[in-house]
Amino acid sequence: MGREFVSASKVFHADEPGRRIVKRLPDGVTLIFHRPSGLTHILGSPAPELLEALGEGAADIDMLIERLSRDHDLGDAGEARAALAARLAELETAGLVWRV
């Protein structure tokens, strides 16, 4: 085992905000039309907030926590980190978020 690289695979990317249409419904659910794929996504919090935070630029999870903390009370840091990691994985599966 050699030296550890700073892995690019920890950095998350999302399309710039102009590439999707976001509709927040009164019942708290958010509809997102993803222009590049033509797919419609139905998301609950904090997935839309994560996409919004990634709209500022690619980020790893610590940077995302920092960005989200400006507007949201994330509570216990460990729990927040685990929850955000799970939501990011779902967004990756949906094709809305990726790593290079």
Partner: peptide, 26 residues
């Protein structure tokens, strides 16, 4: 009925929602 469910039901009730793309969503 919650708005999200209404939305899903209407996409199912539409035969050309996907074909219309952004226009259909809006």
């Amino acid at each position: 009925i919650g708005e999200a469910e209404i939305f899903v039901r209407l996409t199912q009730a539409s035969t050309n929602y996907v074909a219309l793309g952004e226009t259909g969503f809006t």
